[in-house]
Design a protein around this nucleic acid. Structure first.
Lengths: 120, 120
DNA sequence: CAGGATCCCGTTAGATACTG
DNA sequence: CAGTATCTAACGGGATCCTG
């Protein structure tokens, strides 16, 4: 989502980061386990490719949601964890997820009702 | 965001709808005014094109967030308002927006700190 | 183990022009 | 007033292969 030249909107700025396909799911996983490694995450976040995991983690790191620690070992070990900022985001995020779970049926019903009214 | 064949995830399902560039801003506007007409919305939601407003409203209507009432008049009058489902969404949405407003600076700081560390 | 590089395609969103 | 149609550039995301 390319930001047009007008003033930076905080809402959109945050939504651009967490509105993609994977960010929320990664944050949710990290919210459960507190510290996770790369392949651990790729197993936990079902369906994600390594590339998207890598990209999304990097963006979350850039924006301060996630911290990344590299250990100088062989084989390499990299650990990801929520930062304080990331933790503070869990509250509103879980409220949103809870709402989504609770109203998913209504949304699906609305969709079928819509196609029944308007067709396709 | 094309849903892969595995089971429909409520979180992603909701996020696909409200995670785009305009939905949240439209819902926020409708949350303030309770009833709005098309051109009123296009003025209120700054920067949106008529086309994107039209498309996004239609999707929000399909998913039951927004109701649409057409009056058989000349010139035509169409009013948009939140449904009950839409209203129930305002709570978690505002929690998210408040978080975004409150932590926007930290995110921007994290970004500049990142480029200072890693470069570009 | 933890990624990066490349290719490729479907979707998104902007601009512009047109309509009932 | 309240939209729709078309065209196009940009982006997201999957698959595959390669590396330190």
């Amino acid at each position: 989502m390319a930001l047009p030249p007008w003033q930076p909107c905080p809402i959109r700025d945050v939504l651009d980061r967490i509105g993609d396909q994977w960010s929320l799911l990664i944050l949710e996983a990290l919210g459960r386990e507190s510290v996770m490694r790369f392949n651990e995450l790729s197993r936990e976040v079902e369906g994600i490719s390594r590339q998207m995991l890598s990209r999304t983690l990097k963006r979350l790191e850039q924006d301060g949601f996630v911290g990344r620690t590299v250990y100088a070992e062989v084989p390499p070990r990299v650990e990801y964890a929520l930062t304080e900022l990331g933790h503070s985001f869990l509250g509103p995020m879980r409220a949103l997820v809870a709402w989504a779970d609770g109203h998913h049926d209504q949304i699906r019903d609305a969709r079928t009702a819509y196609v029944a009214r308007e067709g396709s």
